[in-house]
Amino acid sequence: MEKTVLEIRNLTKRFDGAGVLNDISFSVREGEVIVIVGASGCGKSTLLRCINRLEQPDGGEILLDGKPVGGGDMVAVRRQIGMVFQSYDLFPHMDVLGNLSLGPVQALKRPKAEVEAEAKAALARVGLADKLHALPRQLSGGQKQRVALVRALLMHPRMLLLDEITAALDPEMVREVLNVVLDLARDGMTMLIVTHEMRFAEAVADRVIFLDGGHIAEEGAPDQFFHHPQTERARQFLNTFEFDSIKKS
């Protein structure tokens, strides 16, 4: 039985009185990949952002390796949880190497030479060995997101939060980013992924959580969720991705 990395108990978040997240509870085991799906505005991103306190939850508890998150030292917690965003969050004034080494060198105080060697090797693994000194604006969207993934990984986090990391990409670039994520999953990285790519979700997930109206409406293995959804809401949601039945009459 694998260890539990992250446990969420009765998480609640409101914006201006309206509940965005209501009483969310689940846990993530070591090496597990959980994909969170749901319609826009269902609270998926807010859920991820509550985990590393980019948003302040209004109720409930979050435990990382059994220790409660929040209150005190968020910096230490954030060093253990990597996050990649939808929009390109690379630092535009630094080259790729600068982006990759900032966290390990400044936050973790690791020796610069060691970090840079590791960064080079990691960059090569995602096929960007020649981009070490490129500036973010010289990279394609897909390349940027691969660099952002490597940047998060170089912190050697306990887990990764991926917030719709392919949503802003041109279709032909989605694949190169998702391949990196699939590799990470195979290597046993613990991940919580929000995505609209249903085929990818099915391929990468150990478990799928379907959020609807701020609740967990359905939760299960990808096979079951995508092919035999239990709830009407989930069936409706999955149908919006189907074009087979639509015909120009």
């Binding site: 980019l54 253990q80 996050m83 900032l102 966290g103 936050a107």
Partner: peptide, 14 residues
Amino acid sequence: DPVQNEAGLCLGLT
């Protein structure tokens, strides 16, 4: 961009 601030915080920078 506010996301720059968040990206830095997520890297564990103070």
